[in-house]
Design a protein around this nucleic acid. Structure first.
Length: 488
RNA sequence: GGGCCGCUAGCUCAGUUGGCAGAGCAUCUGACUUUUAAUCAGAGGGUCGGGGGUUCAAUCCCCCCGCGGCUCACCA
């Protein structure tokens, strides 16, 4: 199929033909020696002829002199192109260049009358002709940006344009990369092994979510994209891999909103000989390392809140906090009373399960107040099937979720390693939950039966962590290519 | 899935109590040998998201649909 026709594309395709007719290859494979633009800027004025390359971002014609701005990832520099400095072919080529074209130039560096360091171009080579126009964004003397491309739909669908034009997006992408890298460094240097477990699974588990369903032709069987890595990683801990982690995509077939994406990146780590207290320290340290990598201080701004990431983070026990904020002894209430209260608060009138009710009421009463980094600790056992119960109260588990600015960033517990108890819980859940379809992961239970040391486990939503550290209002801003509906 | 808002030129956006569709930038032609949101003179560019309805006349009002945003619901 040919490129869609419009005036702009037709015009550029015509120029492309003209360039070929001049005997110039518009898409050469070879780039002559070049210096990054940043290096030219650091060099300053020099008679030495230097080469560089980049994309044409602005073109100002003044008769026999043309000023262009080109940029590369390291910066932007002005080109001073005068007819007398170029050969005829070079000057003719210039006439067929447009904003967005990628070129190589060489020349000495000088400062113009208006004080702008510029390349006095003596050689001009086309490296890639752009046949599709890109939006033109201008910045004035006051640094004010005009005609910025801000339509989210456009940005998500054409991320290449977004990255070309929007500094914030480039910075966020770099921050994300460095954050993940810093987390790996932190864990690797502390003795953890990074592993890869299956994305394509016959039995999914480790979280309560609907999976994406696929089909494996050669086996003729239904399979699922993973919703968590938990159950595989714990098999490794049982196998003697006592410090292990995975950073990868999980897929949950559920609604999309500002803080949920159907595919998202999660870190899960498991560590033997420690418990959820150890995981709290790990989380605090990972947040420190990530903030350092993102180049923010420990006091950050997110969604209009000033947030202090310095440890230790606040501990908020689930049941007492719920009682304090609600003014009622809700944990002792029965399902009917809880359900009635939830309905009265407009949280939904068809919730009939105690775990869901407690969770919902907690979200209503307590979560919104968790602006500064907080660990909500000691969740009711019904909400935490894979966590170990507290020794002195079997109705409570050694589990925490970490919140920053009301956003859930992490979930962790002292891992349940009692195989008999764990089997009972999973079998009961398989019979009741809409998510489980009556399937129990017996290989996971096999591992517990073989014996798994007391361990702590921690899951961190990487996209959300990036949101917090780059002040992104939507998880989609932290994901380069978020899922969008098909364009009509 | 519900509610609200949006969709107009390549980009950013005006606009019409319903009466030939507008600006800036970009593009094209011309002028200009130190400009920088360059400037000046001229020109072209639109199925006003799609479909249906009301009307002499719809980009505008009504209905359906598509896409997006915010929000609520859902989401261990």
């Amino acid at each position: 199929m040919a490129i869609e026709e419009n005036e702009f594309i037709a015009n550029r395709l015509e120029k492309l033909t003209g360039i070929r007719e001049m005997g110039i290859a518009p898409y050469p494979a070879h780039t002559p020696d070049r210096l990054p633009i940043e290096v030219l800027r650091d060099t300053g004025e020099t008679e030495e002829v230097l080469g560089t390359s980049g994309r044409i971002m602005a073109k100002r014609k003044h008769g026999k002199t043309v000023f262009c701005d080109i940029n590369d990832p390291t910066g932007r520099i002005q080109l001073f192109i005068n007819k007398k400095n170029l050969d005829e072919a070079g000057w003719d080529l210039l006439g067929k260049l447009d904003l967005g074209d990628i070129i190589w130039v060489s020349g000495a560096l000088f400062v113009t009358r208006t004080g702008e360091l510029s390349v006095r171009v003596i050689t001009l080579i086309l490296l890639a002709k752009a046949v599709r126009p890109m939006p033109v964004v201008k910045t004035d003397a006051d640094g004010e940006v005009h005609d910025a491309v801000s339509d989210p739909d456009f940005i998500y669908r054409h991320r290449c344009i977004d990255l070309m034009l929007n500094e914030d997006s480039r910075k966020r992408l770099a921050s994300r990369s460095r954050i993940i890298s810093a987390i790996r460094n932190y864990l690797d240097s502390d003795g953890f092994l990074e592993v890869e477990t299956p994305v394509l699974q016959q039995i999914y588990g480790g979280a309560a979510a609907d999976p994406f369903v696929s089909h494996y032709n050669s086996m003729d069987e239904e399979c699922y994209l993973r919703i968590a890595t938990e159950l595989y990683l714990k098999r490794l801990v049982a196998g003697g891999i006592h410090q292990v982690y995975e950073i990868g995509k999980d897929f949950r077939n559920e609604g999309v909103d500002r803080t949920h994406s159907p595919e998202f990146t999660q870190l899960e780590l498991y560590e033997a000989w420690t418990d959820y207290n150890g995981m709290m320290r790990r989380f605090e340290e990972i947040v420190q390392a990530a903030a350092k990598a993102a180049g923010t201080g420990l006091v950050i701004n997110f969604g209009g809140h000033e947030i202090d990431l310095a440890p230790p983070f606040k501990r908020v026990p689930f049941v007492p906090a719920l009682h304090e904020k609600s003014g009622e002894n809700l944990f002792e209430w029965d399902v009917e009373k809880l359900s009635a209260l939830a309905a009265k608060l407009g949280l939904g009138d068809d919730i009939k399960e105690r775990p869901a009710l407690l969770d919902k009421l907690f979200d209503h009463y307590v979560t919104p107040g968790l602006i500064q980094p907080s660990f909500v600790v000691d969740y009711p056992v019904e909400l935490s099937p894979l966590a170990k119960q507290k020794a002195d109260d079997p109705r409570i588990t050694e589990r925490f979720e970490a919140f920053i600015a009301g956003l859930e960033l992490a979930n962790a517990f002292s891992e349940q390693n009692d195989p008999v108890y764990q089997r009972e819980v999973l079998e009961k859940q398989a019979g009741s939950s809409r998510h489980r379809k009556g399937v129990v992961d017996t290989e996971f239970l096999y591992a517990l039966e073989v014996g798994m040391p007391p361990s702590g486990g921690l899951g961190i939503g990487i996209d959300r962590l990036v949101m917090v550290l780059t002040d992104a209002s939507s998880i989609r801003d932290t994901i380069l290519f978020p899922h969008l509906r098909r364009e009509q």
